[in-house]
């Protein structure tokens, strides 16, 4: 059973026909030749397939392509390229936030989601309960970054560099007028 769908992938509208069983990850990789998102566990546990779906980070292996019909998808390839890398991609390079690189596109997309979520004031499990209840805006400390990035595994163990990279990008990303957010 098939479905005709349209996706806007990294800014480009794409029309395709998929078996309804096709995940967004397989649609991107196998139908649209966008191999930035990687297939790791294929069960939502490793985060290597992370993309931004309508601006929110999700694991594309658990989203059916048919259910994403009409949506805007941003992969790591759409965040930036070698000539003009996204600040997060640049920070990953500068902090050695990778070794083999397989999880990196997912890490970078997830981190992009983390920055947007923090800018929107979203709390995390690392946010102190009283700050949570008072509605204070979060500050991306290392503890906050570790918690918010826990959906992305790195088997090379480049976590120290990843936390440093996300922290650098977060400080550059924070709106200047916020005065430190607190």
């Amino acid at each position: 059973m098939e479905a005709d769908i349209t996706l806007t992938v990294d800014g480009r509208p794409r029309a395709l026909r998929v078996d309804t069983r096709t995940t967004l990850l397989d649609a991107l990789r196998e139908h649209l030749d966008n191999t930035a998102p990687k297939k790791g566990c294929d069960h939502g546990q490793c985060g290597s397939c992370t993309v931004l779906l309508s601006g929110r980070r999700v694991v594309s292996c658990l989203i059916l392509a048919a259910a994403a019909d009409g949506a805007e998808v941003t992969t790591a390839a759409g965040l930036g390229d070698e000539a003009a890398p996204h600040p997060l991609q640049q920070a990953f390079v500068e902090h050695d936030g990778l070794q083999c690189g397989y999880c990196t596109p997912g890490q970078v997309c997830s981190a992009a989601g983390v920055l947007d979520e923090a800018a929107a004031g979203w709390p995390s499990a690392a946010t102190p309960p009283d700050d949570l209840a008072e509605g204070s805006a979060p500050v991306l400390t290392d503890a906050e970054i570790r918690e918010r990035m826990s959906g992305n595994l790195c088997r090379c163990g480049a976590y120290a560099g990843i936390v440093a990279a996300v922290g650098d990008a977060a400080r550059a990303h924070a709106p200047a007028e916020s005065g430190g957010n607190r």
Partner: peptide, 18 residues
């Protein structure tokens, strides 16, 4: 806030977005 805490303690950021 107990509901926020419970939600935030579950799954990952990507899964909570879906």
């Amino acid at each position: 806030p107990v509901l926020s805490q419970a939600l935030l303690s579950g799954a990952s950021g990507q899964l909570r977005n879906a």
